[in-house]
Amino acid sequence: MLPPTRIKCGSKGPNSLSDVMKNAEVSMQQVGGRTLRTATWRLDKPSDHPPVLFFNGIGANIEAVAPLADALPERGFIMFDMPGVGESPDPVVPYTPFTISWTAAQLLDKLGVDEVDVMGISWGGGIAQHFTMQHPGRTRRLVLIATSAGMLMMPGSPKALTKMANPRRYVDADYMIKNFETLYGEGLGKSSGKKGHMSLLKPPSPRGYMYQLLCMLGWTSAPALPFLLRKKTLIMMGDDDAIVPLANGKFLSMLIPDSEMIVMEGGGHLFLLSHKEQSVAAIREFLDSPHTSAEAGEAKAA
């Protein structure tokens, strides 16, 4: 494991967000008995890089992180709305990290993709860890953003977690603006940044949100990480994150053998948006770094 790198960031808000899906191919995919709204970028274009499979945060639809796909134009990107989130229909039965990881692998099969770099933010970071351990042959590298090892985590601020659990944050603009800094830190700064982020959100259905909560109930990756997660991993954390405190990233870094950690100074839970340039640069540098001897061996074996 490498010692964490600390990056000092500014507080620039996101770019114009009205056309975040203009470059995406959006479709409804029937996968593993579920219907998933799926967005892909550049899968049909030649690339020297594997595409990115991205798992979003709880209750968040594709649009919330779509700007990241445009910020890495040299790579293909794959995202999907979880059941009952965004425009994916409600789930009929609950799902688990195992079943949703299996479903994601089935989606890759349908899209004709063999290997991916996996990313996940917050809730989606847990699914990203599980997918990587469940499907190591399909994963090259892993990027974990503002996330934890699940049940064995250092809890965030009670004030922030109480507001996080309130679904009003998705449907009540005044409530979101009033509590934005409590939830996400000061990283997005001006109210225009707050409203820009809110314009991307579509409320999940009550069942969709509840099933996402149930999915991770009692789940933890901690016992398995030292033994089953053997992929080169970048852990990105904000030092002003009231929802997933920095200590969780340090815990992950301690457990994942081949990991490095970057800390965004002044970064709240949404530093991926508030510190977009720094975040994209760190992700690109990590994904573009030379193959490790283990990766070279895997590629030769394949």
Score class of each variant (00 low, 15 high):
Leu2His: 08
Thr5Leu: 12
Gly10Val: 00
Ser11Thr: 12
Asp19Lys: 11
Val20Ser: 00
Val20Cys: 06
Met21Trp: 03
Asn23Lys: 08
Glu25Met: 10
Val26Ala: 14
Ser27Glu: 10
Thr35Ala: 15
Ala39Phe: 12
Trp41Pro: 02
Asp44Leu: 01
Ser47Cys: 13
His49Asp: 11
Pro50Glu: 12
Asn56Val: 07
Gly57Met: 08
Ile62Cys: 06
Ala69Ile: 00
Ala69Cys: 07
Ala71Lys: 01
Ala71Cys: 00
Pro73Met: 01
Pro73Val: 01
Glu74Gln: 14
Ile78Gly: 03
Asp81Ser: 11
Asp81Glu: 11
Met82Cys: 12
Met82Pro: 05
Met82His: 14
Val93Gly: 05
Val93Gln: 14
Pro97Trp: 05
Thr99Trp: 04
Trp102Thr: 14
Thr103Tyr: 04
Ala104Tyr: 04
Ala105His: 09
Leu107Glu: 03
Leu108Ala: 00
Lys110Gly: 12
Leu111Lys: 10
Gly112His: 05
Val113Ala: 05
Glu115Asp: 08
Glu115Ala: 01
Met119Ile: 04
Ser122Asn: 02
Trp123Thr: 02
Gly126Thr: 06
His130Trp: 03
Gln134Lys: 07
Pro136Gln: 01
Ile145Ser: 08
Ser148Asn: 14
Gly150Lys: 00
Gly150Cys: 03
Pro158Leu: 06
Lys159His: 15
Thr162Trp: 06
Ala165Ile: 00
Asn166Thr: 08
Pro167Asn: 10
Tyr170Pro: 07
Val171Trp: 02
Val171Cys: 13
Asp172Tyr: 09
Tyr175Met: 01
Ile177Thr: 14
Phe180His: 14
Glu181Gln: 14
Thr182Arg: 06
Thr182Gly: 09
Tyr184Val: 07
Gly187Asp: 10
Gly189Ser: 13
Ser191Phe: 01
Ser192Ala: 13
Lys194Pro: 02
Ser199Lys: 04
Lys202Val: 15
Pro203Thr: 07
Pro206Leu: 08
Pro206Ile: 05
Gly208Thr: 08
Tyr209Gln: 09
Cys215Ile: 02
Leu217Ser: 13
Gly218Thr: 06
Gly218Gln: 11
Thr220Trp: 05
Thr220Gly: 13
Ser221Tyr: 01
Ala222Trp: 02
Ala224Asp: 13
Lys232Met: 08
Thr233Trp: 02
Met236Asn: 02
Asp240Ser: 15
Ala242Lys: 14
Asn248Cys: 12
Asn248Gly: 04
Gly249Gln: 05
Ser253Gly: 15
Ser253Arg: 15
Ile256Arg: 04
Pro257Ser: 03
Ile262Val: 15
Glu265Asp: 14
His269Pro: 09
Leu273Phe: 10
Ser274Ile: 08
Ser274Tyr: 02
Gln278Tyr: 09
Ala281Glu: 14
Phe286Gln: 09
Asp288Tyr: 07
Pro290Met: 07
Pro290His: 01
Ser293Pro: 03
Glu295Arg: 10
Ala296Tyr: 11
Ala296Lys: 15
